[in-house]
């Protein structure tokens, strides 16, 4: 050996250690895989117990019945990924629904009313975003305020339920495109599935989407790295509000009316679906697909409860139990990853 040794890039000399891609992915996707496993198990159990359960008809109506919740959960996923929360969406569903029904009743044409329903949601979302980002108000409080505002506005529009007879709106719900073998979709389901597909792309393949994850990871660092934190955070609430507007439209079409008392607690259903879908409430980790599965699990529990024939409150109990299991599971996963 030489007298004065030097270190010649020993790091480069070491054999490259490359974990196979699937293995890297696996740990990130584990919560979503767990949810899909649960979903599958529920289908199999249902089929075994009730028979005639795992059918094209049931799955098709599962989507139909939960289209609005899918859209809400997608919007909520953006917000939760940044570490925020949006409690206003249930009230926005009620407000946008009754607002639209009222406009239609007064004789406004559907091609104006439908965008108006959606945009009213976006505006409320924008309000929350500005409160959170500019005035630095806790998302919980800001969206709570927006919830009261939207609910109050809904009451102002009308206390009575207003029926919707406009053909364009009812078309969204009543049209069934038969896909053969008992499968069918409605325009509302197509809207919901499109929302999911677009969001998968946005969150994975755009700078905006990655900034959403970045904010959830560490907001201060994201800012120092030069990412557009302010813009992204406001946008996230606008997206959630817009999704709530779309969900309001779907829900109004689904129920054939606007009613200021609908959607009570619906925001909690959406949050539950997102968490069951594996997104972590502190932000930075999760997938939209998981939220879709979360809604499916939720819907399936509802259906199973009806099949069993016990009181529908059991849905809440089962969902609550499942939620607990998932939160604990996430803690364990996070703790293991930190190791």
């Amino acid at each position: 050996m030489t007298a004065a040794p030097t270190l010649e890039r020993p790091l480069a000399q070491r054999a490259p250690r490359r974990t196979p891609r699937w293995q890297l992915r696996l740990s990130a996707w584990l919560p979503v895989l767990t949810t899909s496993a649960i979903l599958l198990a529920m289908f199999i159990t249902g089929q075994a117990v009730f028979g005639n359960f795992f059918t094209s008809r049931l799955i098709s109506s599962l989507f139909l019945d939960n289209a609005y919740l899918i859209v809400l959960a997608v919007g909520m996923t953006y917000v939760i990924l940044t570490g925020g929360i949006d409690l206003s969406v249930g009230a926005v569903v009620a407000f946008s629904g009754i607002f639209g029904a009222q406009l239609l009743q007064t004789g406004w044409p559907a091609f104006i009313v439908i965008p108006a329903i959606v945009v009213s949601g976006s505006l409320i979302g924008a309000l929350i975003g500005v409160l959170v980002q500019v005035f630095e108000i806790q998302p919980f409080i800001a969206s709570l305020a927006a919830m009261f505002l939207a609910r109050g506005l809904a009451y102002v529009v009308s206390l009575q339920s207003i029926a919707i007879t406009d053909p364009a709106v009812t078309w969204l719900e009543r049209t069934r495109f038969q896909l053969g073998g008992g499968w069918f979709v409605t325009p509302t389901v197509i809207i919901a599935v499109l929302t999911v597909a677009v969001s998968v792309w946005v969150l994975q393949y755009t700078r905006f989407g990655r900034s959403v994850y970045a904010i959830g990871g560490n907001e201060q660092s994201a800012r120092l790295m030069g990412l557009q934190v302010a813009r992204t955070r406001i946008a996230v609430y606008v997206i959630s509000g817009t999704c709530a507007g779309i969900a309001g439209l779907i829900f109004a079409a689904y129920t054939g009316s606007g009613y200021s008392l609908t959607g009570l607690g619906m925001e909690l259903d959406a949050i539950a679906a997102v968490v069951i879908g594996g997104t972590i409430l502190t932000g930075g980790s999760g997938y939209v697909i998981g939220s879709l599965f979360g809604v499916m699990v939720y819907g399936l529990i509802e259906i199973s409860i009806t099949y069993i024939g016990v009181d529908s409150w059991w849905t809440k109990i089962v969902v609550g139990g499942l939620l607990l299991v998932f939160v604990v599971l996430q803690r364990l996963l996070v703790a293991r990853r930190k190791r």
Partner: peptide, 8 residues
């Protein structure tokens, strides 16, 4: 004090 983003 920049910690970057541990989740990405």
């Amino acid at each position: 004090e920049m910690d970057l983003l541990p989740n990405l």
